[in-house]
Structures are given as C-alpha cells and as structure tokens.
C-alpha cells in the first residue's frame, strides 16, 4: 500500500517535471508564433516579452507577407527547388553507391568504403574556400547548381544506404539474373523499392539539411532573388528592425511545413536525424 502510494507520487513528480522541461523546450517556438501576431513595431520595442497586449494580436504580418513581400516568396521558391533537387539527386547517387558497396564483390571495395568513412570526418568548412574559388572560376556562382553540387553524393547517406543494403535479400538478384534482368534492372526495379524506409529517412535528412543550410549558400548566392530562406531571412536581421514583419511571420512559415511533416513521418525523421548513431 505504502510502496504503491510512493510510486504514484513519483509518477506525478516525474511526469510534471518532464512537462515543465518540454514547455521550456517549446517556449521559443510558441513565442515565435505569438510574436508573429504582434505588431512589428511593438516587437522591435519590447523584444519577445512575457507581457503581451492581447488586444493587439492580429494577422497583419501575414497579410503583409502574402500581399506585399514578393521577395520572400522568391526565397521560398528557391528553397523548395533547391531542396527538391538535392533530395532527388543525392538519394539517386548515394543509394547507388551504398548499394554497390553492400551487394557486390569487387576490387577496391574496402578502399572505397574507407574513403566514405574518411570523408565523413572531413568538415565541409575547411574545403569551402577552394570550392568557392572553383565556383567562381567555373562561373557557377549564384546558381542553383553551385548550391546543390557539394550535397549530391552525401557520405552520411552512402554509409546509411550501405548498412541498410547489407540486409537486402541477395537471392533475389540471382533469380532476376536467370530471368534475364540487367544489373540496373535489378537495382531500380527490385532492390531500390525494398530500400524504401531508408530512402524516406535519408530524404528527410537531406531535405532538412538543405532547407536549413546556411554557410555554403551564403557564399555562393549573391543576388537577392536567388537567396534561399535562411539567407534571405538573415538579411532582414538588421539592428533597425524595419523588416520584422516579414522576418517573424516568414520564419513561422518556414517551420510550420517541417513540423507538419514531422507529425506524419516522425519515425523517418528520427531515423534520419540520428543516422550518425549507426556508427557507434
């Protein structure tokens, strides 16, 4: 009886503590949404504040962004296009490489795999100056292509696909060969569909990475109408706060689609974003 009561009290304490911790974690996101409903001059004067004048909340910032901020929608379009291209290309190439490293026996296979692991450890930041120079010399600067190029064959994704492909039923390949299928047919028609869950996880990892990518696009994108959302929004971060209406409401509009996707595909989000874990 006594132990039971003690457990009940512990459950209450633990659950309430986690409720409070979760609220703290969610607080910035909630306050962003509330702030997007406040007049931007007010936000500029007060910052994000506990003392909110509820009678002032309105959808004005959103009306403004929908009607009078065409540059914001250009950034949105750029981000969508760049993320889509990145997802398609990087899934296509990385799955091919990871699959080959898993199912075929060929000379140099271990060497290539070692290279993948090595590249995983080389941070992009130390390669960026020569790559930036390369983009200038090849006149690719300020194009979608320049933004996407370094993400096309992602070592993380290659690694992930290889681990996943190790579990594919190899017997299917021989059966398909007897049937006269080419190696490419085997990959695209039989094996790739079987890799579905890993494709979903990597699509999310690459898509989110590209949607939120900052440093590289900051280097290679120069004209305002080529900016992606993070770069465009960062240009609004001026000390004068004259663009806060677009900045705040615009930020909300970049997060909401991701959160909706997260709610529906939570499993793949978690698998994708903790990919490094399979390394341990």
């Amino acid at each position: 009886m006594n132990a039971k009561r003690k457990n009940k009290i512990l459950t209450w304490i633990a659950t309430i503590s986690f409720g409070v911790i979760s609220l703290i974690a969610l607080f910035p996101i909630i306050s962003l949404v509330i702030s997007s409903l406040r007049p931007s001059s007010e936000l500029m004067r007060q910052g994000i504040s506990f003392s909110i004048n509820f009678s002032q909340l309105s959808l004005d910032n959103y009306l403004y962004i929908f009607n009078q901020a065409p540059e914001y929608w250009a950034w949105y379009g750029n981000s969508l296009v760049i993320s889509a291209i990145t997802i398609v290309l990087s899934l296509f190439f990385s799955s091919m490489v990871g699959y080959a490293l898993a199912v075929y026996d060929f000379k140099g296979k271990n060497f290539f795999f070692l290279l993948v692991l090595l590249i995983l450890m080389v941070p992009f930041e130390i390669l960026m100056l020569p790559l930036y120079q390369l983009m200038i010399n090849t006149q690719l600067i300020d194009t979608y292509f320049a933004v996407v190029l370094p993400m096309v064959v992602a070592p993380v994704a290659v690694f992930f696909f290889r681990q996943y492909a190790l579990g594919l039923p190899i017997q299917l390949m021989d059966a398909a060969r007897i049937d006269g299928s080419t190696e490419y047919g085997i990959f695209f028609k039989i094996m790739l569909p079987l890799m579905g869950p890993s494709l979903a996880a990597m699509a999310i990892l690459q898509g989110l990475g590209s949607w939120n990518n900052f440093l590289w696009p900051l280097l290679v994108l120069r004209s305002n109408d080529m900016f992606t959302l993070p770069i465009g929004l960062a240009t609004l971060l001026t000390p004068y706060g004259n663009n806060y209406d677009v900045l705040i409401a615009g930020s909300v509009l970049t997060i909401i689609p991701i959160i909706i996707l997260f709610v529906f595909f939570q499993r793949y989000f978690i698998a994708g974003l903790t990919t490094g874990g399979v390394k341990g």
Binding site: F18, I21, I29, P230, L233, L237, S251, F269
Partner: peptide, 19 residues
C-alpha cells in the same frame, strides 16, 4: 515529451537564433 524535446532540431539556426 520526446517529440517536444526533439522539435527544436527542426528549426534552422537562423530562425532559432532570431527568436
């Protein structure tokens, strides 16, 4: 709780930093 604690990872540093 797990989902709420995970949610901030979905924001970009720019949006999070701005908040």
């Amino acid at each position: 709780f797990r989902a709420s604690l995970f949610l901030p990872a979905l924001t970009s540093t720019i949006v999070g930093g701005m908040i």
